[in-house]
């Protein structure tokens, strides 16, 4: 189990380190890995072995989460290629983009204050459509290996992901 913890997420899931992945395949790989290493398979064993399976099983879940999310997958892939993006300190955006962000945030707040579940779902659908376009763009840039152009769409992508998280927590709150 120690050996598997040293593998990167793509290696762990036995897939090529590329952006365009087959989601169904990584879902199946995740299930197969968990079938072998989930703590339930080690509940009768020594505490050290059980603890190791807990760590590895958590690592498999983390790998799945990263690979399944386009934003996290893009960042992880860039990191493997030696490119680190500091999303927290990247704050240069066009005026129009920032204005749109503010508008969406206000719409989410309003829908939450009105306990309007359907409105929140509608906002989420719009955000997903925009995310999808950016993912397509990122995919093309990875394929054509134009990494110098990739930072801008990834930055924008991160904002749409954040807004969707805001929708999710608003839905959980109402």
């Amino acid at each position: 189990m120690d050996k598997l913890l040293k593998l990167n997420f793509f290696e762990l899931f036995s897939i090529e380190p590329v952006f365009n992945i087959n989601l169904e395949q990584i879902q199946n790989n995740m299930r197969e890995l968990q079938k072998q290493y989930h703590p339930d398979k080690y509940s009768n064993q020594a505490i050290e072995v059980a603890n190791q399976s807990l760590i590895l099983s958590s690592y498999i879940n983390e790998a799945y989460r990263t690979l399944a999310s386009p934003l996290l997958r893009a960042l992880y892939l860039l990191k493997l290629r030696g490119v680190e993006i500091d999303l927290v300190h990247e704050t240069k955006f066009s005026h129009a983009f920032l204005l749109e962000q503010i508008e969406v945030r206000e719409a989410i707040d309003d829908a939450r204050d009105n306990q309007d579940f359907d409105q929140l779902l509608a906002i989420e659908n719009e955000l997903q459509a925009k995310e999808q376009k950016l993912v397509q763009q990122v995919n093309e840039l990875f394929t054509s290996d134009k990494l110098e152009l990739i930072i801008e769409p990834i930055k924008q992508l991160s904002f749409y992901v954040k807004l969707q998280q805001l929708v999710a927590s608003s839905i959980a709150e109402i």
Binding site: P39, S57, S58, N61, E62, Y64, R65, Q165, A168, A172
Partner: peptide, 14 residues
């Protein structure tokens, strides 16, 4: 600040 969002598969370490 959320560290592990709800509906995350367990076990999970972050």
């Amino acid at each position: 600040e959320k560290i592990i969002p709800r509906n995350s598969p367990i076990p999970v370490a972050r």
